[in-house]
Nucleic acid binder design. Structure first.
Lengths: 194, 194
DNA sequence: GTCTATATTGCGATAGAC
DNA sequence: GTCTATCGCAATATAGAC
C-alpha cells in the first residue's frame, strides 16, 4: 500500500500512537509492529524512542509558523481575529493529533516543552494579544478589555471545542461542515456578547 | 509529619505523581518510595496500580457533585453563570491536579473515562446549557445564540486559563488574588462583547 | 499491617548476520 | 538497510517472614 519510506512510516505511526497513549503508554515494540518494520529501525532512523518523540513534536508544531502570515496581513483587527479563529480550527482539522501533544505537554511537560511547545503557544497567544491591542488603540474595541485575558479567552474557546470532543460528541455536532457556522457564532459572541 | 494512614498517604502521593507524569509515567516503585511505604502496600490497599489510579480519579471528580447546588439555586441566569464561572475557578484552585486528569482522560482515555470522567463533564456542560436556554427563554439573552456552542465557549474560556498556565505564566498573572477580577472580566466579555 | 525478597514479564537498545 | 536474537534492566505483582 504505502510507498513511503520506513522513516516516514515510523513517524506517521508514532504520531498516531504517541497521541493515543502518550510517550510512556506505547512501547517501541508495539510501534514498530504497527508500522510494519523491525524494532531496530527506530534506533536506526532516530536515536531511540525519546528522540522519535521529539521529531513527532517538531513536525506537529511546525504549523504554528503560519502565524506570521496573519500577523503581517493588512486587515482590520476584527478580520484578523476571524482569520485567527479560522486558522485555529483548520489547524485542528489538519493535525487531528496536535491538541493531544499540546495538552499533554502543557500538563505533563517533557524536556522538549520549553524548546518546541512553549515558543509555539506563546507566539500564537501574543499574535492574538497584538490584534486586540491594535483594536483597542483604534477605538474599535472597548478599552476596559485586558488584552491578555481576552486573548486567552478566545484561544480557549476554540481549543476547548476540540478538546472536549470525546465528552460532548453525543450532543454537539463536531463535523467540519459546521466549522464556518461555528466561526460566525464565535465572532458573534465576542462582538455582541450575550 | 503526616498523621494520615498509609492508605490516604498513598492516595495523596499518587494524586500528585500521576498528575505530574501520567499513569504510565510513574512506577509503583517511585510512588511507594515517595509515599514512604513499601511497594507491596499498593497491592494491599488497592488492587494494583491501575485500581489505585481509578480511586484517584474518583476522588478528583467527586467535586462535580456541587453542580446540583448551582442548578437548584433560585437566581437569574446571569447570576447562575457567574456562580458557574466562580465555581469552575475555585474548583481548579482547590483541586490543582484535576485539570490534568481532565485533559489526560479527554485526549488519552483510560477505561475509566466513560464511568467517571464523561458523566462529570457532561453534567457540567449540561448545567451551563440549561442556564443559557433559560436566559434565552426569558428574553435576557439573544435568541440567535446556540446554547451548546455558547456553553462550550464559556467552559473553554475558564479551563484554558488554567490549562495554558505553563505556557503563559511569564506574561499572565495567575495568582488567586486576581480571580475575582478575572470573573468580572469574563462576565464583561460575555455580556458586552468586544 | 508491613516488610524484604523474588518470580515473571516486558521494556529499550544493540550486536551481528544478511 | 533490514532483520533476528539477545543483553541488561526495570516494571508489576506477590509469597512468605515478622
Amino acid at each position: 500500500m504505502d510507498k513511503k519510506s520506513y522513516r516516514s512510516s515510523i513517524i506517521s505511526t508514532a504520531t498516531r500512537l504517541f497521541a493515543e497513549s502518550g510517550l510512556y503508554g506505547v512501547s517501541i515494540r508495539e510501534l514498530s509492529a504497527a508500522a510494519g518494520v523491525s524494532i531496530s529501525m527506530i534506533s536506526y532512523y532516530f536515536e531511540g524512542k525519546e528522540s522519535l518523540y521529539a521529531s513527532v513534536l517538531q513536525e506537529q508544531f511546525s504549523c504554528f509558523e503560519y502565524l506570521q502570515t496573519i500577523r503581517d496581513k493588512s486587515a482590520t483587527p476584527l478580520e484578523k481575529i476571524e482569520d485567527y479563529i479560522r486558522w485555529s480550527i483548520q489547524r485542528n482539522r489538519d493535525y487531528p493529533f496536535l491538541l493531544r501533544y499540546y495538552t499533554s505537554e502543557l500538563t505533563n511537560p517533557t524536556r522538549h516543552f520549553s524548546v518546541i511547545v512553549q515558543p509555539a503557544l506563546e507566539k500564537a497567544l501574543q499574535t492574538l494579544v497584538e490584534i486586540i491591542k491594535e483594536g483597542i488603540d483604534k477605538k474599535l474595541f472597548r478599552d476596559e478589555l485586558d488584552p491578555e485575558d481576552t486573548a486567552l479567552a478566545m484561544a480557549g474557546m476554540v481549543n476547548y471545542y476540540f478538546l472536549s470532543r470525546l465528552a460532548t460528541q453525543e450532543f454537539i455536532n463536531h463535523s467540519p461542515e459546521r466549522d464556518e457556522e461555528l466561526i460566525r457564532h464565535y465572532m458573534d459572541i465576542f462582538t455582541k456578547g450575550l
